[in-house]
Structures are given as C-alpha cells and as structure tokens.
Simulated assay, not measured.
Amino acid sequence: MNALICGSMAYDTIMVFHDKFKNHILPDKLHILNVSFLVPAIRREYGGCAGNIAYNLKLLKEEPFIMATVGHDFEPYAHWLSQHRIASRYIKVLDDHYTGQAYITTDVDDNQINAFHPGAMNFSHLNSVPVDSEIGIGIVSPDGKQGMQEHAEQFAELGIPFIFDPGQGMPMFNGEELLHFLDLANYATFNDYESELLQDRTGLTLEQIAEKVDALIITLGSHGSQIYTQGGCIDIPAVAPAQIVDPTGCGDAYRAGLLYGLMNDYDWEITGRIASLLGSIKIEHAGTQNHTFTMTEFKQRYQQSFGSTF
C-alpha cells in the first residue's frame, strides 16, 4: 500500500538571537515598532508538513508519495528527496513562484518571531489526487485552502481513506467547512489547542466529533495523546526523549506513525504508540528531517519504551 501525502513543502530558515526579545521591545512603543536583531547562528532546513511526514514514513520503510506545489527554487530540496528515495512524481513546480518559506527567529527563552511566505503552496489546487495509481491511503495536511478542500473531496470520491490534519491551517476554515471535512474523512487528528478551536467553531464536543470519523486523534504534547474510536477513548503514553532539542516537526512525525499503523493494519494501541515514539525521536534532533534509525533500532526502542513488540 502506498500513501499520498498532500500538504506543504517549505524551506525553514532558523535564526538564533543570543538575547531576549523583551530586552529590546518596549511595550509602550509597540505602535512604532522598529527593531533589528543580530543573529550570529543560522541554519536552513528542509521542511513543510508533507515533506516532514513523508521523510518519517520513509524511515519506517513505507512508500510515501508527496503531492505539493513548489517554486523555481526547489532544486536543492528535490535533490534531498532523491537522496532519500522519496518519490516526487506528484510534486508540481511553478516557475513564477517561490517554494514556501518560513523564517523563524528564536531568543534564549525559546520565544519565536516567525514569518511565513506560502508561495507556490497557494496553488495546491492545481494538483489532483491521481486516479490511476496504487494509492491506498492519504492525508490532507496544511496546504492552500482550496487545495485542501478539493483533495479531501477527491479522496472521498475515489474511495481512498484519508486523515484530515488541518494543523496550522485551522484558522482558514469556519465551522461549516470543518464539519464537511469531517464528513468526508475517515480519520482526523488535532493537537490540544486545535481541538479546542474545533469544538468552538463546530459547537460539538470531542465525543460528538468522534462519531463522525472512524478515529479522532488528539495529541497532548508531553502528556501523550488520546484516540477516540468505537465509542471509547484510548490513552497513549508519551515517550520520554533522551534530550529535548527541537520540537519543530514532532506533530508531523506523529502523523507519519499514524499512517504507518493504518497501512499495516495495527490496532490503535500499537498505532498510537508507534506515533508517540516517532515524535519523541524527532524532538531529540534539530530540524525536522535530520533524525535517522533502522527498523531494528526502532523496534528495540519500542520494546524498551512500552515493554512489548509489534
């Protein structure tokens, strides 16, 4: 079974300011804000939700296909995907646009000032879910609004089960639109903040939302996650990382674990634990696609973490 990963591709430019923002921003002068931060530490990472999910799923020895729109500056990222044998046949290059760009400045207190240029991502609707492939499952992750809506419709029309994962794209949708996604999707996943926003915008409780899908997954950071399915709720424990280096991309790693479990017909207890472990491994490394492991190493750590195997 192959997985189609619909979502963003982006370059993450991460800068570190060796001081505190609060020492340089005057609260009573915010209306005339004009500040500059010296950032002696900088790095550029490959990111975007689709890229991150696919990278993690490939580590688990599955075959992800990324479907995304990118810009004329995509060549270095394309080379990276090729090095890791991640298929790019459904990635469309738009020569008049940039690939999505995230600029993240972090201070010594881990506060962040971010700017994001969506670029080619805004045209994700120019791609369509392929009808003549061996896609067995999909995910609709953060992307252009029209693209997310159309790809969900296409998965449903083709009878391909998929996960609805709006992530940071949640604010784009009103309650009616979110309910329609849930009517189309087989599974849905949100973090704790997004789940609160979902309830506020739809007027439904988590239990009511869970009735609309086969499984509703809520991630709770260091408190683990919860999977609502078949009228019950399964608590999935968090895996304590060896060290906390960078939480960016942990949610994407977790979602790759969900896809892996579904692709291999594992029950939700095992699927959730695989996802939890994958997120923990990611947090131990800087960037979203710099961690690596063999399946033997992953299964050994799973056994150490949960006292069982899969």
Rank of each mutant, 00 (worst) to 15 (best):
F298N: 05
S305N: 03
R201A: 08
S133H: 07
F65C: 08
F21P: 11
L60F: 00
G138R: 10
L38W: 15
I53M: 01
P76H: 05
T13A: 14
A10R: 11
C250S: 10
L258P: 00
P247A: 13
F162G: 05
G175F: 02
M148R: 09
M1W: 04
N23Y: 15
A240C: 15
T69N: 01
I86Q: 05
A3P: 08
V239W: 05
L259Y: 02
H31K: 08
Q226F: 00
H285M: 15
L277K: 04
A120L: 06
K20M: 13
G232K: 14
T271Y: 01
T294G: 02
H72M: 08
D107C: 07
P161K: 11
P64R: 01
S133G: 05
C6H: 15
F116P: 07
N23W: 15
S276K: 01
A242P: 02
I32F: 10
H285E: 14
S276F: 00
Y77E: 07
F173Y: 14
I281M: 12
P166I: 02
L197N: 03
A188K: 00
Y77K: 07
S305L: 04
H97S: 12
V108I: 12
F65V: 11
T294N: 02
D109F: 09
F298K: 05
G147F: 12
E196Q: 09
Y90M: 04
L26G: 08
D132M: 09
P142V: 08
S305D: 03
S276V: 00
A242M: 09
T205V: 15
I283F: 06
H79K: 15
L126R: 09
T271Q: 01
G100Y: 07
D200V: 10
G175Q: 01
R301W: 09
V39G: 09
D252K: 00
Y11C: 02
N52I: 07
S308L: 07
G287A: 03
A120I: 06
I137H: 02
D19P: 04
E177M: 13
G287I: 03
S195L: 09
T219Y: 00
V70D: 06
N34G: 05
I234N: 04
L220W: 11
G138C: 15
E134W: 00
G232D: 13
H117P: 04
I244N: 02
L4W: 06
H125V: 03
Q208N: 15
Y254H: 01
D165R: 02
F293L: 08
L158C: 10
V93K: 12
G251N: 13
H180G: 04
A152Y: 09
